[in-house]
Simulated assay, not measured.
Amino acid sequence: MNKQIVLLVEALEQAAAEDNWSLVQQIDSRISAALIQLRARQANDGAHLSLEQLQQRHAQVAFLCRRRVDELRNILRQHQDNKEGIQAYAQFSSEKEI
């Protein structure tokens, strides 16, 4: 696989592991540009294999992103579901102190 793409994919995986989603987006754009160049030069099976490996690793990071979005969505839903109870408890606690 092209060394530049290997480095980009590794950086993409690292950024996803660190929940650095703005960096994931930036690196993903750079990978897209590198892929365009790679496809233009694709003349042998080795390049085709590189593309398949890149697509597989990219799919793994995309899965991590979707899973994290789902986790965050659930956390937000829980906060919304508990909002009234938390507000009531806070109000009750402050009234008790008075």
Rank of each mutant, 00 (worst) to 15 (best):
S50Y: 09
R73L: 15
K96R: 15
I36T: 15
V69M: 15
L49P: 01
A15R: 11
S94H: 08
A16N: 07
A34C: 00
Q37H: 04
S93P: 10
A40C: 07
A88W: 00
I98T: 14
S94V: 03
E10R: 08
R68S: 05
L23Q: 02
D28T: 09
A88M: 03
D19T: 01
K83S: 07
Q53V: 09
Q53R: 05
S32F: 02
Q42F: 07
A88I: 01
A34N: 03
M1A: 15
F92G: 01
A34E: 01
I27W: 09
Q56H: 09
E10Y: 01
L51K: 05
H58R: 12
S29I: 04
Q78L: 12
L38M: 15
R77V: 11
I86P: 02
R39W: 00
Q25Y: 12
Q60S: 11
Q56L: 06
F92W: 01
A16R: 04
Q25W: 13
F63Y: 13
L72G: 05
L7P: 04
S50N: 13
Y89G: 12
N20Y: 11
L54T: 05
F92A: 13
A47D: 02
L35I: 06
E95D: 02
A90G: 03
D45W: 03
R77I: 09
D45F: 02
K83F: 09
A40V: 07
E95Y: 06
I98Y: 15
E18I: 01
Q4T: 05
C65D: 11
R57K: 04
Q4D: 06
H48L: 13
N74K: 08
Q78D: 15
F92D: 11
E52Q: 07
I98V: 14
L72S: 08
F63H: 10
A90Q: 02
L23V: 09
Q25R: 08
I5G: 02
L12I: 07
G85I: 02
Q87V: 13
E97V: 15
Q91F: 12
E52R: 06
A15W: 09
E10I: 03
L54C: 10
S22W: 04
E52A: 10
N74L: 01
I31K: 00
K3F: 00
C65K: 13
S94D: 03
Q37V: 06
Q25T: 13
R57D: 07
A62D: 05
